[in-house]
Computed example of a mutant assay.
Amino acid sequence: MEKEEQKHNPGFLEYVYKLTEGTDLKEALSLSLENIDRIDIAQLKRIGLKTYEAEKWTINKIIQHLIDWERVWCFRAILFARGEGSIPDAHDQEIMAKNSNADELSIERLIEELRVVRQSSILLFDSFNDEILNTNCEFFEYEMPLYAIGYTIAAHQIHHLNIIEERYIPLDQ
């Protein structure tokens, strides 16, 4: 891809920065962990494997998606931080969801795994100094600073918890 074709500050980052507005990276990740701890597991258990529309993911698959993508983003962050230079091809979230066994796992287990993965991500991003956090990351058609990956993790959770709140919680009525 020619350099001039690179998308500096890709469009999705505007949404990421909107969802995490007013917070520094450390605070955004800490708040996201607090939000995990506030999830009403009993309510999610009552909703179970219901979806608000045919062909939509269950809450279990949404939580598994958050876990999987956080791991993917952290892997990318490590590659950039360590100057390794090779980023694997893009991943397909639909294929990943289809091949997960998330609906066989309890919501308690999935939330606990999300919590542990987030704690690990917080430690990872805390280990990066300013020079690393400001590393320019070029992958696929995107170009952005490494710290944006951390914000993307926090915003991705906000986005999906908002969907759960708006579309799945009404299923508990």
Rank of each mutant, 00 (worst) to 15 (best):
51 T>Y: 06
103 D>V: 03
68 D>W: 08
173 Q>P: 02
35 N>V: 03
112 E>N: 14
74 C>N: 15
4 E>R: 08
172 D>L: 11
120 S>A: 14
52 Y>S: 02
10 P>T: 09
64 Q>A: 11
40 D>V: 06
157 Q>S: 13
133 L>K: 15
59 I>W: 12
4 E>W: 11
18 K>N: 11
28 A>F: 04
107 I>Q: 11
47 I>H: 08
121 S>R: 05
42 A>W: 04
120 S>L: 05
78 I>E: 11
53 E>A: 12
118 R>K: 14
11 G>K: 12
44 L>W: 15
171 L>S: 09
156 H>S: 03
67 I>C: 05
57 W>C: 06
122 I>K: 09
143 E>A: 14
73 W>A: 15
43 Q>H: 03
31 L>E: 10
133 L>Q: 12
57 W>S: 04
139 F>Y: 10
74 C>S: 13
15 Y>L: 06
69 W>H: 02
68 D>Q: 07
3 K>W: 03
141 E>C: 00
166 E>I: 02
49 L>F: 02
17 Y>Q: 11
149 I>W: 07
24 D>E: 11
99 N>F: 09
28 A>M: 05
51 T>N: 08
50 K>P: 01
62 I>H: 06
106 S>P: 05
144 M>H: 12
77 A>W: 09
139 F>H: 01
112 E>P: 01
81 A>Y: 05
13 L>H: 00
10 P>W: 10
91 H>R: 07
43 Q>S: 12
27 E>N: 06
67 I>S: 07
134 N>M: 09
95 I>P: 01
172 D>H: 10
93 Q>K: 01
92 D>E: 12
48 G>N: 06
144 M>W: 05
52 Y>H: 10
168 Y>D: 08
65 H>F: 07
30 S>T: 05
37 D>A: 14
46 R>D: 11
170 P>E: 10
10 P>S: 07
158 I>S: 02
34 E>H: 07
27 E>W: 00
110 L>F: 09
143 E>S: 15
11 G>C: 00
141 E>S: 13
98 K>W: 01
134 N>C: 02
153 I>W: 03
76 R>Y: 04
16 V>Q: 05
96 M>V: 07
68 D>L: 09
151 Y>E: 01
108 E>H: 12
106 S>I: 05
59 I>P: 09
6 Q>C: 04
119 Q>L: 13
104 E>W: 00
13 L>G: 02
94 E>P: 00
24 D>S: 00
84 E>L: 14
113 E>S: 09
10 P>D: 07
116 V>C: 00
4 E>K: 15
